[in-house]
């Protein structure tokens, strides 16, 4: 293996959290991938409708949202990095920065949905927009859950000095979930916003 020293709160050649977390993540990735394959399958029946409808999406907002989530994930990586050297104040700051990017993502999403509703576009407009709302709302639910988890973890941060090892464990597990939210969005953006 690559590492001789422990790289996380457990042992070498181990992962964050417990095996259940990883099974849940793999299951979630599989469900989303099946959903994306379904979108592409139905697209095959009427590609022109999908291309025309897709042109009414705001790809620039989606780009900004991708950059926000990637940066958010990176802040969480830095937060874990600092927590491992027991620099909890710095770790807490990075975690807040990561959460702020997540809140920014939600804000952009509301602007995007607002624009759509104003243009008279909703779930029932056509098949493409049904898939668009279905996939993005399901993803948004994941963002909200992820932010909730990170908030609970942040609230549990030590005020000073005394730190239980469980704190690092929780931060790492929450981070893994947050990275999954990020990577689901990366694929969603390619399938729903960009593929044509």
């Amino acid at each position: 293996m690559n590492e001789a020293t422990p790289t996380n709160s457990n042992q070498p050649e181990s992962v964050y959290g417990e095996i259940g977390l990883w099974i849940a993540i793999l299951a979630d990735l599989t469900i989303f991938t099946l959903m994306f394959a379904t979108v592409l399958y139905y697209r095959g029946f009427n590609p022109e409708l999908y291309v025309q409808s897709q042109a009414r999406l705001d790809q620039f907002i989606a780009l900004i949202n991708t950059l926000l989530l990637l940066t958010s994930s990176f802040f969480v990586v830095l937060s874990i990095h600092k927590a491992r050297s027991w620099d909890w104040p710095m770790s807490g700051r990075f975690l807040l920065a990561g959460m702020a990017c997540g809140v920014g993502f939600i804000g952009m999403k509301f602007i995007e949905y607002g624009d759509k509703f104003e243009a008279g576009i909703n779930l029932r407009t056509n098949e493409f927009f049904m898939f668009y709302f279905m996939t993005t709302i399901l993803h948004l639910v994941h963002v909200l859950i992820g932010l909730g988890v990170l908030t609970i973890i942040r609230l549990g941060f030590p005020a000073r000095g005394v730190v239980a090892k469980g704190r690092l464990f929780a931060l790492e597990a929450g981070g893994v979930f947050w990275h999954m939210v990020d990577l689901l969005w990366v694929i969603l953006m390619a399938v729903v916003y960009l593929a044509r």
Partner: peptide, 24 residues
Amino acid sequence: GLFAFAFIKARLIIRHFMEVKHAP
């Protein structure tokens, strides 16, 4: 090409951010 980029990015996130490169 777009899907390839997306999955390469996904794998980078998995390997480096989730640190699966250190996993069993």
